[in-house]
Simulated scan of single mutants.
Amino acid sequence: MAAPPTRFDDFILSVRQTVTDFDMIRPKDRVLVGVSGGSDSMALVQCLLRLTQEMAFGIGIAHLNHGLRPDDAQRDQAFVKSFSEKHRIEYHTQTADTHAYAAREKRSIEEAGRILRHDFLESVSQTHSYSKIALGHHRDDNAEQVLMNLLRGAGITGLSGIPPIREHGIIRPLIRQSKSDIRSFLDRIDQPFMEDASNQDTRFLRNKIRLQLIPLLRDAYNPEICNTLNRLSDVVRQEDEWANTLTEQIFESLDNLKVEPDQIRFGASPFIKLHDAVKRRIIRHAILKIKRNLKRITLAHVEDVIALAAGGVGGKSLDLPDRIRIFIDKGCLCFKKESVPLRQLNRK
């Protein structure tokens, strides 16, 4: 790989501090950078490229063509490939049929795109022995996420926003940078980027929040709304991490606890006597263990599980997203990830 430029400006120094504070990258790491060709991902890859020698790690680039905007998608794919070749960076790409996947899995286009992108990055990372996956989310994205989660009725974890680091080696080095910081950095280094027209489509909730709600809040209520939301996110995340530690301890002490890869059960009667806040966390913890994530699990789902446990009646069950079935069996509250779609089980 060609030697990267050595000039460090304030933007790069700030990103380096974020990487250090969250222990995102260590010497000899191989970092797979998700690059769409947009401003955020181009700033990310340029910044990491400038840090590779000092911090002794390597990078590769991954680009997924979602197949949503045929002409623009081909343009973006060619742009990222050209950048990779110019800087002699290992390049991985794939084309997906997002419309077909969304129809087949009954997902929105936005959600289908996220899932396909995540699966692609995970596959490339495992196949080519990358230790980290770097994504270009920034502080404005985080503010949008907090608002979006609030509007959807999320609990405390949702208000913690986008985590700087996550399981499976996912890191977000730009999480403390604003969009304006990113654009200014790209201007200074004369780095072009691709514009995605779909980012202006207010049919998508995230775009509507960014283009309409946040400007309204900033102009009419709080000029520092993004900073305010990010401070909230930081505080909530720290307290949530602390509460999760306590939740794990309480979970391990539950009566008649039995944990298997696809099923968890524990005594319903002792559980229902716990504080409501603890019950909600225990339920989310149990679902997370068998589902591997909490996507599409809402506060309403959690409250329904509490009601089921309080009823204590066998034979009743709840069906949650991604084949999660919750039921009462012999006085125990059971969480099970079924191997087939729940609608097939219901027909039996």
Results as ranks from 00 to 15, higher is better:
Leu257Lys: 04
Ile297Glu: 06
Gly311Met: 08
Lys258Ile: 10
Gly267Glu: 00
Thr298His: 09
Asp329Leu: 13
Leu299Thr: 11
Ile272Pro: 00
Gly314Ala: 13
Ala300Met: 13
Arg284Trp: 01
Gly315Glu: 10
Thr247Lys: 03
Leu246Gly: 03
Phe251Ala: 07
Lys289Ala: 08
Val305Met: 05
Ala309Trp: 00
Trp242Thr: 11
Ser269Lys: 07
Trp242Phe: 05
Glu248Gln: 12
Ile326Ser: 06
Arg284Asp: 11
Lys273Glu: 15
Leu254Trp: 06
Leu288Cys: 02
Val259Trp: 01
Phe266Asp: 00
Val302Ser: 11
Ala286Ser: 15
Ser253Thr: 09
Ala277Arg: 03
Glu260Asp: 14
Thr247Arg: 04
Gly312Trp: 05
Arg323Lys: 14
Ile328Trp: 02
Arg265Tyr: 08
Phe266Asn: 01
Gln249Tyr: 08
Ile250Leu: 07
Arg296Pro: 00
Glu303Arg: 07
Glu252His: 08
Ala300Leu: 14
Arg325Gly: 02
Leu308Asn: 06
Ile272Leu: 05
Glu248Ala: 14
Lys316Arg: 15
Ala307Arg: 13
Ile250Thr: 07
Glu260Ser: 02
Ile324Asn: 03
Ile328Gln: 14
Asn256Asp: 15
Ile282Arg: 10
Phe271Thr: 04
Ile324Gln: 09
Lys279Ser: 08
Lys273Ile: 02
Asp255Phe: 06
Asn293Cys: 13
His301Thr: 01
Asp304Ile: 00
Asp262Gly: 02
Val302Gln: 07
Ile264Arg: 04
Gln249Ile: 13
Lys316Cys: 11
Trp242Met: 07
Ser317Gln: 08
Ser253Ala: 13
Ala307Pro: 00
Arg323Asn: 14
Asp255Ser: 12
Ser253Gln: 15
Val278Glu: 10
Val278Gln: 05
Asp329Gly: 01
Gln263Phe: 00
Lys273Cys: 05
His285Phe: 08
Thr247Cys: 11
Glu303Met: 09
Lys258Ser: 08
Lys289Leu: 11
Leu318Glu: 04
Asn244Cys: 09
Ile324Met: 04
Ile283Asn: 04
Pro321Asp: 05
His275Leu: 12
Ile290Glu: 05
Leu274Ser: 02
Asp329Cys: 07
Lys330Ala: 10
Arg280Thr: 06
Asn293Val: 02
Lys289Asn: 10
Lys273Tyr: 07
Asp319Arg: 12
Val302Trp: 14
Ala310Cys: 07
Arg325Cys: 12
Val259Ala: 01
Ile326Cys: 04
Ile283Gln: 07
Lys258Pro: 00
Ile324Glu: 09
Val313Asn: 09
Glu260Phe: 09
Glu248Cys: 01
Thr298Glu: 12
Lys289Pro: 00
Leu246Met: 10
Ile324Ala: 03
Ile297Asp: 04
